[in-house]
């Protein structure tokens, strides 16, 4: 069973979100997603300052087996990207919720966070797959 931290929010498409008090969200892909995809070889991140809608394709994670789109869980503006992934895509495999984070948004509508799954709901989703 993969790791599903209680404090995070999740999407159907296997992103996780860590929302902070100041309306920012850090986003990555779940442990379950990285396991399915296998060894990461390349991560394409969104451009800085890009404005994203909830559910918009904004990034690609590429493993030897597959390339998969990453969707923005909420709407917002990109304020940081994890530059380390350029040289070390394996960070997503090694530490998907920590050093393997992908990008950070300034959320435009924090109420959208309520639409996301909590850890229990995501665990259920995983077990159905």
């Amino acid at each position: 069973m993969s790791n599903v931290p209680q404090e995070l929010k999740y999407t159907q498409s296997h992103e996780w979100v860590l929302a902070s008090e100041d309306g920012q969200a850090t986003i990555g892909i779940t442990d379950h997603a990285q396991e399915l995809l296998g060894d990461m070889v390349f991560i394409e991140l969104p451009e800085m300052d890009r404005e994203l809608d909830a559910g918009e394709e904004c990034s690609v994670v590429e493993s030897v087996k597959a390339a998969s789109d990453v969707y923005s869980p909420v709407a917002g503006t990109v304020i940081a990207v994890n530059e380390r992934l350029a040289d070390a895509p394996e960070l997503i495999n090694e530490d998907p919720y920590g050093d393997g984070w992908m990008f950070r948004l300034q959320i435009s509508d924090t109420s959208q966070l309520d639409d996301l799954l909590d850890a229990t709901a995501y665990e259920e989703l995983e077990s159905e797959e």
């Binding site: 070889v41 590429e62 493993s63 030897v64 087996k65 597959a66 390339a67 789109d69």
Partner: peptide, 12 residues
């Protein structure tokens, strides 16, 4: 870099 190709990425 086969992940970019049609047999894996299909419509993308």
């Amino acid at each position: 870099l086969q992940a970019r190709e049609q047999h894996i990425r299909r419509s993308k």
